[in-house]
Design a protein around this nucleic acid. Structure first.
Lengths: 225, 225
DNA sequence: TCAATGTATTTTGTATACAATAGTTATCTT
DNA sequence: AAGATAACTATTGTATACAAAATACATTGA
């Protein structure tokens, strides 16, 4: 934990939430690495708060699957084995298909327009090679679909599942040779939604997730060595 | 909160976990009712611990969707509207089908035998009218299928989703006229798994969940009046 | 050298103290 | 009597203090 974690104190939020967001970001960005211990006193000192909000934030990170704690031993950033990732992706696959099929019925013209726009933004971003922006546009794209389900719990679960692979997915997005495939898959999803062709949408989404699965698992296999 | 909550101190667990389990049980059993406030000092006094483990347990209950907290206002037992329940069931439907289809491929002979046994136990229990036991046997039945997926995260999510409707589902189980349908559906699921007929299994599971959905939503509609 | 034991240190677990906010009641003003 | 305001109370938010457990390290004895 060499990076200097600092809090965004601007918000009028309980410290536990601020700490939670800070640690969450740090984990997703890879500043806090899998397996790294989350020591309360250390974090408290670094963030300039007491142990209390740190502890509560850790309980919240546990929820999200981003941390694991062993009683009387402490918490650490969740590690992911290839098996864990496969498990997550199996679930994500099913729920992403569900979301796609609901969205297919419920998406509005406006949302579809927004989706098209974001799709183009994504395509543009791949030309810049700005990995952070590419990732953001991709998140935005899928969020529109999630939102179109009108099911906040599903929305939440999916963004949660995405989070769990975020750290590994970034590597995938770095690799330029994946861009054409990603762009094509996005476009198929949009087409399918526009045509309200559920078969096409779910098939495209399935392929999209499975492609990520293969790539992300590859990344993990590298790391596990 | 008239009931006398008491802790199971037998286990060598951090108090937060003991408190969490205690409150969780109380919520699921309906001793703590939807909308009821979870006041730290009150709970601490009642359980004979300090506020610290209570607060951490509340953070954990939030995770599970069993409590909701408003900053500087406090926590309360999560309420469920019919829409919330429909949202949960939509997810459960997809994941139960996923679980069923994986189980169809992976379930062992021994597990299938266990499943058959539990199915009969369930059938027996319906004759006794002991609602608690009926519910337990039903949980056991589905847990065997969840376990057969070899996907602990999926297992966990499904039991979590089940929990969220547990309070309402009990009412459904009280109603004798549902027993024949339940028994038949269980038997179809088992048959399908034995024959490794994925179509049949997922169809049966889907029907099983949708039937519950209808009934549970009915219960909520009653309560919302 | 190695294992075992004891001791110091670090870290988590729990309780309590204090601060800040929200909610409630009583009082005052018109 | 109605509304505003002030004082009080209840409750959450945060920090700190103390206890217990785990860990690391050194010392001892074979």
């Amino acid at each position: 934990m060499t990076e200097d974690l600092t809090l965004n104190m601007n918000a009028y939020l309980p410290l536990r939430d601020v700490v939670f967001n800070t640690l969450r970001e740090a984990i997703l960005k890879g500043e806090l690495k899998p397996g790294e211990r989350l020591m309360e006193l250390q974090l408290a000192a670094k963030l300039g708060v007491s142990r209390t909000p740190i502890r509560e934030a850790i309980r919240m990170l546990e929820q999200e699957g981003l941390a694991v704690t062993i009683p009387r031993k402490g918490a650490e950033v969740a590690r992911m084995t290839e098996k864990d990732m496969e498990d997550v992706l199996q679930i994500r696959d099913a729920l992403d298909e569900l979301a796609a099929s609901i969205a297919c019925e419920q998406i509005t013209k406006e949302e579809l327009e927004e989706l098209r726009h974001t799709m183009h933004e994504f395509e543009e971003s791949t030309k810049t090679g700005d990995v952070k922006r590419i990732a953001e546009e991709d998140v935005k794209f899928h969020d529109i679909i999630y939102r179109a389900t009108r099911n906040p719990k599903l929305e939440n679960m999916l963004s949660n599942l995405r989070e769990q692979m975020y750290r590994y997915r970034v590597e995938y997005i770095k690799d330029e040779k994946n861009y054409p495939v990603l762009i094509k898959e996005h476009s198929q999803i949009v087409e399918g939604l526009a045509a309200k062709d559920m078969e096409m949408v779910t098939a495209a989404m399935h392929k999209h997730v499975r492609n990520q699965a293969t790539a992300v698992k590859e990344m993990i296999r590298e790391q596990e060595k």
